[in-house]
């Protein structure tokens, strides 16, 4: 399986400036040394709560935000040899590569310029990315619209004349215009109503199958991530704390944060009487990161080691990595189910 994207040790730090001369006095470490790889044609889920750095990471990948360090290797279409490091590209070469990678944002109300007709919203990026004649561009736009289930009638209308779900379809159509092979989906269904959300999820799956797209799906919604993604990485305070195949993460979460996150998701099934363990407190500010493991301030199982030593990502099951000093001990403590599952997975590998 080839990789569409490989990120190594990516960092996005925002300087904190103070005083008359705007001296740099520190940094918000929004993304702090993240590495991951996305196989071609897969959907990779990036999960975390607000402020964990998942959107900064998504934007840094597309170079909408300059990374402070690390490499982003992207394999463009028809380039089966080497992947390109996006962080080292000249602005001109980057612009040429942009057509291969696109983004869909969360808020369908902010994603479309309210003053332009849909035809202009779709024509503008196409002009910038491809040198096509007017008739060809129109052809492309109609293809894109059709792919997302809209008709030519949409072209002459303004964004406010559409519902939230339809706007998100237009935003997806815009992302498809240049025939990209990689799309970052930054919370694309979080602002939508449940019934419309299912329409968009179906559309995304359908498009992926038809066009062979690779998705990076950024979300805080675990039920949607579980449904859509092949692989998942859980972020906490700018770092990945656990990643692996979706089934494994949900069946056998290894990091205490993942466990508590899963327990906190309200399931649409009444379950009276049982009160799950709750994660206490709030995440620390990324301006003022704790020593040691970033999660130790809220972790029910933290030890002295956690307060001083930063845990590294370790592979405990095939392709399932976790950054916790005590993952094995906790898996045993969780009961035989967790330990057995892990042993089984090891044996079959």
């Amino acid at each position: 399986m080839t990789e569409r994207l490989r990120i190594s040790d990516l960092k996005v730090h925002y300087p904190i400036r103070k005083g008359l001369f705007r001296r740099v006095v520190g940094a918000v470490r929004a993304v702090d040394g993240v590495s991951l790889a996305i196989p071609t044609g897969a959907t990779f889920g990036l999960v975390g709560e607000s402020g964990c750095g998942k959107s900064s990471l998504a934007r840094a990948i597309l170079q909408l935000q300059k990374p402070s360090g690390g490499r982003i290797l992207f394999r463009a279409q028809g380039q089966d040899a080497a992947a390109t490091d996006l962080t080292a590209l000249s602005p001109r070469k980057l612009r040429a590569l942009r057509r291969e990678m696109q983004i869909v944002f969360q808020d369908p109300y902010a994603a479309l310029n309210p003053r332009l007709r849909v035809k202009t919203i779709l024509d503008e990026p196409l002009r910038a990315m491809e040198s096509l004649g007017g008739a060809e561009r129109r052809e492309r736009i109609l293809q894109s619209l059709e792919a997302v289930g809209l008709t030519e009638a949409a072209l002459e209308r303004f964004p406010h004349q559409f519902s939230g779900g339809q706007r998100q379809r237009i935003a997806i159509a815009r992302a498809l215009l240049s025939h990209p092979n990689f799309i970052v989906l930054d919370e694309p269904v979080s602002a939508l109503d449940v019934s419309v959300r299912a329409q968009i999820l179906n559309l995304l799956i359908h498009l992926q199958r038809r066009l062979g797209l690779t998705y990076l799906f950024v979300s805080h919604d675990l039920s949607v991530v579980r449904y859509l993604c092949d692989q998942v990485a859980i972020m906490y305070l700018g770092r990945i704390v656990e990643s692996g195949p979706t089934d494994r993460i949900f069946a056998n979460p290894l990091h205490p944060y993942t466990k508590l996150l899963l327990a906190a998701v309200p399931a649409p099934r009444p379950r009276r009487g049982r009160k799950p363990v709750r994660l206490q407190g709030d995440p620390p500010s990324p301006m003022n990161m704790p020593e040691g493991c970033p999660f130790h301030t809220r972790c029910p199982d933290a030890t002295d080691e956690c307060r001083t030593q930063v845990p590294q990502l370790r592979e405990l099951e095939p392709a399932h990595t976790v950054s916790c000093h005590h993952a094995e001990r906790l898996a045993v403590q969780d009961g035989p189910a967790g330990a057995q599952a892990m042993a089984l997975a090891r044996a079959t590998a």
Binding site: R98, Q106, A128
Partner: peptide, 12 residues
């Protein structure tokens, strides 16, 4: 605004 970010993503 995301539509301005989109412009950058499209290389405008």
């Amino acid at each position: 605004k995301e539509y301005v970010l989109s412009c950058r993503a499209a290389g405008i």
